[in-house]
């Protein structure tokens, strides 16, 4: 079968150009990618948190409460849910199963699947079956019992499903526009969560400051790295030397690590350029310019300057730039 394109309308690809895709498909592709990544982050945050609480042992109720609230603020999940259960039960259930909470894992997966269903013909069967499978798994009758039995295993399954989905995306989809949009979605979401994890966790840590002795402090710092899936690679870089400034530097500026903000921005720049090139355009697009500038900024930044400016202020600036880039992307491609 030959490609179904009209040569008078479209120049087929001696440069490897992709077929143009429907704006609505691009939009759904983007949101599918974001929600899958978001579900993974929520699962990881909760999993790390439960582990952390076991490690640090008894905390004062106030401190424990405060720790749980960082989960809500990291995911911008609104107010603390009410009820008579202990805070850990309330928040982990709320962030896992509550369909009325748009940040809960169930909501993220349902929305990712809704978007995938709307572009069922654009994605591979493997991707669809993976997403549909995890949806049936988490909405099925046994989900509650599985969760009760081992929250750790439960969250691990969600994370693995997301990883599997990303692997399938890379290996079963042509690396054309469709794929670029999934990449943009993934890295935008990752920057968003990573920046907020750094903000909220360092905020709590600095407030607690003197109250914490060294072992507990280390456990908390490990928690920050784990929340960003970065503990092992950090150790390889800096040995087991846990130090706040280095950790912040690693998570923001590390060159080759796929969880650092700098790496994500590089990928955003590359993917937006990919979209533009596959449309046969020669001038950098609006989102591409934004991400390109941000990439240069991060490349030449140093942690001392960042700390001098203020960690939160710096991260807020990055978040602003990425949301501008995201808006430019929607304007250029989705809202035709």
């Amino acid at each position: 079968m030959t490609l179904i394109v009209d040569p008078s309308q479209y120049r087929p690809s001696d440069t490897g150009e992709a077929r143009p895709m429907l704006s609505r498909d691009a939009d759904s592709m983007f949101w599918m990618g974001r929600y899958v990544e978001r579900a993974e982050h929520v699962a990881r945050l909760l999993r790390v948190h439960l582990m952390l609480l076991t490690d640090v042992g008894d905390l004062t109720p106030v401190l424990e409460h405060q720790m749980w609230l960082t989960i809500l603020s990291s995911m911008r999940a609104g107010k603390e849910p009410e009820g008579s259960d202990p805070v850990s039960v309330r928040i982990s259930r709320y962030m896992t199963f509550d369909p009325s909470n748009p940040s809960s894992i169930v909501s993220c997966i349902a929305r990712a699947r809704e978007n995938a269903r709307a572009i069922r013909e654009s994605i591979s069967s493997e991707m669809w079956e993976c997403l549909n499978g995890v949806y049936l798994w988490i909405t099925g009758e046994e989900a509650g019992a599985r969760f009760e039995e081992s929250p750790d295993q439960f969250y691990a399954h969600i994370m693995n499903s997301s990883m599997l989905f990303q692997g399938l995306t890379d290996q079963t989809l042509a690396h054309d526009q469709r794929w670029y949009f999934t990449q943009i979605a993934k890295y935008l979401e990752r920057i968003d969560v990573t920046a907020r994890v750094i903000e909220t966790r360092f905020d709590v840590l600095s407030k607690m400051g003197a109250q914490l002795d060294q072992p507990i402090r280390n456990i908390h710092l490990m928690g920050v790295l784990r929340s960003c899936c970065s503990l092992e690679s950090y150790r390889r870089q800096h040995l087991a030397d846990l130090e706040g400034q280095r950790i912040a530097e690693y998570l923001i500026l590390q060159k080759d690590y796929p969880r650092s903000i700098r790496f994500c921005v590089e990928q955003l720049h590359r993917a937006t350029a990919g979209v533009r090139i596959s449309n046969g355009q020669h001038v950098p697009s609006a989102p591409e310019r934004i991400f390109g500038r941000l990439e240069a900024q991060l490349e030449y930044a140093s942690i001392d300057e960042i700390l001098a400016e203020g960690l939160n202020e710096y991260l807020t600036r990055i978040e602003q730039a990425t949301s501008e880039g995201s808006a430019a992307l929607q304007k250029s491609y989705f809202l035709y």
Partner: peptide, 12 residues
């Protein structure tokens, strides 16, 4: 035409 990321494309 259909609305694509590369502008309008004719549909036959």
């Amino acid at each position: 035409y259909m609305r694509t990321t590369a502008g309008l494309r004719r549909v036959d």
